[in-house]
C-alpha cells in the first residue's frame, strides 16, 4: 500500500479564525492525505515540535493576523535548526503580494492567497513533496 502524505495544518499567531485551516484540512483529507490538525494559536516552537514528532512531509500554515513576516521565517529557521529542512512548508491566508518574495526567500515554498481553489494546493503538494528523502 502506498503511504499517505502526512501534513501538519497549523495556525500560528493570535487570530482566532480557523475556518480557512479547517477547509484546507478537509480538502487534503479528501485527497487521501493524513492531516494532523493542532488547533488555534500555536507558537512556532509548538508547530516545529509537532511537525518533528509527527514526522510529516508537509507543514501547511494558515494565518490571518498579518504576522506572517515574523512567524513564517521563524518556523523555517527552527525546522532547519532541527535538521528538518526537508519538510515542505507552504502558507496561506491574507498575505499581501509584496510580502511573497520575502517569504519565499525564507524557505516558504509557496504562498496561497484567498480565492485559490483547494485543488491547486493539493496538486502543488503532490508535485513538490520530498518524500523520497525519507527512504
Amino acid at each position: 500500500m502506498e503511504r499517505p502524505i502526512r501534513v501538519l495544518v497549523a495556525k500560528p499567531g493570535l487570530d482566532g479564525h480557523d475556518r480557512g485551516a479547517k477547509v484546507i484540512a478537509r480538502a487534503l483529507r479528501d485527497a487521501g492525505m493524513e492531516v494532523i490538525y493542532t488547533g488555534l494559536r500555536q507558537t512556532p516552537e509548538q508547530i516545529v515540535e509537532a511537525a518533528i514528532q509527527e514526522d510529516v512531509d508537509v507543514v501547511a500554515l494558515s494565518i490571518l493576523s498579518g504576522a506572517h513576516n515574523t512567524l513564517f521565517p521563524k518556523i523555517t529557521k527552527l525546522l532547519k535548526e532541527r535538521g528538518a529542512e526537508d519538510i515542505l512548508v507552504i502558507g496561506g491566508g491574507v498575505i499581501p503580494e509584496e510580502d511573497i518574495p520575502f517569504l519565499k526567500e525564507h524557505g516558504i515554498a509557496e504562498i496561497f492567497t484567498p480565492g485559490t481553489p483547494t485543488s491547486a494546493v493539493i496538486e502543488y503538494i503532490k508535485a513538490n513533496v520530498k518524500r523520497l528523502a525519507k527512504k
Binding site: 479528501d30 485527497a31 487521501g32 492525505m33 490538525y37 493542532t38 488547533g39 500555536q42 515540535e49 509527527e54
Partner: peptide, 28 residues
Amino acid sequence: SPFTGGSILGDRIRMQDLTTHPNVYIRS
C-alpha cells in the same frame, strides 16, 4: 476514511501544552 484513505487527526488539539515538554512524545 475507507473511501479516500485520508484522515484528520485532531487529538493533539487537547494536548497542546505537552507538545514542547522534553519528556513527552506524541504521535497521531
